[in-house]
C-alpha cells in the first residue's frame, strides 16, 4: 500500500473547461454575465427589463438554464433576442461543460453581451465557474434579511447584487438598510442596486453602470469583474 499525494483540485476539470469558454468569449469579444439567484427571485424578469432597456444599443444573447421547459428561452425570443435553452434534467446548476456544449449550437459571434441565466439555486451554481466575466446575483427583498448569512458563498462570489422587488418592502418586514448591511458584511465589495421590475424604480442606476461596463469593453479598455 502506498500513499499518493494529489495536487489536482477537485474542480479542476470544470475550471479547465471554464478557461476554454473564457478564451472563446474573449476571442469573439463577448462580455459574459452569469446571472444567479434563488428560484423566484426574479432573474428572468430582471433580464427582460434589462434587455428591453439596452437592446437597441448592444447585440445581446441569452443562454437559459432550467431543470425543465423552454419557457424562459421563449420569453427572451419574444423580445427578439437570440436565446438558447439548456435543460439540465435533474442537475441543480450549470457547469462549464454544459455551457461549452451550448456554445457548439449557439452562435455568439458578433454579440456584445451574453447573459447566462443559471438554474435558480443559491448553493450549487456558486461552485461552478462558467468562464464568465461577471457574476450578478438577484436577491429579492421578500426572501428575508438573513439570506447572505445563510448562503455566504454565493453572496461572496457575486460582484453585483440586484436587490429586486423593492416595491414589496412595506410588506416584507425588512428595511433596505438591513438588507444592504447583511450583503456588505459577507461581501464588502459588492455593488448593490435596489430595483423593482414591477415599477421600474432603480433600473436607471443599474443600467447606467452596465452601459459604462460594456462601453469600456467595446472601447477595449479592459473588463472589470472577477471570475
Amino acid at each position: 500500500m502506498h500513499q499518493v499525494t494529489i495536487e489536482t483540485g477537485i474542480m479542476e476539470a470544470n475550471d479547465h473547461l471554464a478557461g476554454h469558454n473564457r478564451e472563446l468569449y474573449d476571442e469573439y469579444g463577448v462580455y459574459v454575465i452569469n446571472l444567479m439567484s434563488a428560484p423566484g427571485a426574479g432573474k428572468t424578469s430582471v433580464l427582460e427589463q434589462t434587455i428591453t432597456r439596452i437592446k437597441d444599443d448592444y447585440k445581446l444573447g441569452v443562454i437559459e438554464g432550467d431543470l425543465m421547459t423552454t419557457m424562459d428561452a421563449d420569453r427572451m425570443s419574444a423580445l427578439g433576442i437570440p436565446a438558447y435553452q439548456i435543460t439540465t434534467g435533474t442537475v441543480c446548476h450549470l457547469d462549464a461543460r454544459m455551457v461549452h456544449n451550448a456554445l457548439h449550437n449557439f452562435d455568439i459571434k458578433g454579440l456584445d453581451l451574453l447573459f447566462i441565466e443559471n438554474v435558480g439555486n443559491l448553493v450549487c451554481p456558486a461552485e461552478f465557474n462558467l468562464g464568465e466575466h461577471l457574476k450578478v446575483m438577484v436577491y429579492s427583498v421578500v426572501e428575508g434579511a438573513e439570506k447572505p448569512k445563510k448562503y455566504p458563498v454565493m453572496f461572496h462570489e457575486a460582484s453585483v447584487v440586484l436587490l429586486n422587488k423593492i416595491d414589496l418592502i412595506p410588506y416584507a418586514g425588512v428595511s433596505l438598510e438591513e438588507l444592504r448591511r447583511n450583503v456588505y458584511s459577507v461581501n464588502p465589495e459588492a455593488m448593490i442596486f435596489p430595483l423593482s421590475c414591477r415599477t421600474g424604480e432603480g433600473f436607471d442606476a443599474w443600467i447606467d453602470w452596465l452601459r459604462t461596463h460594456l462601453n469600456a469593453k467595446i472601447a477595449g479598455k479592459g473588463l472589470v469583474g472577477k471570475s
Binding site: 500500500m1 502506498h2 500513499q3 499518493v4 499525494t5 477537485i10 461552485e127
Partner: peptide, 9 residues
C-alpha cells in the same frame, strides 16, 4: 476543495 492524498494498494 482538494484531494490531499490517496492510499493505493
Amino acid at each position: 476543495m482538494e484531494i490531499e492524498y490517496l492510499d493505493l494498494e
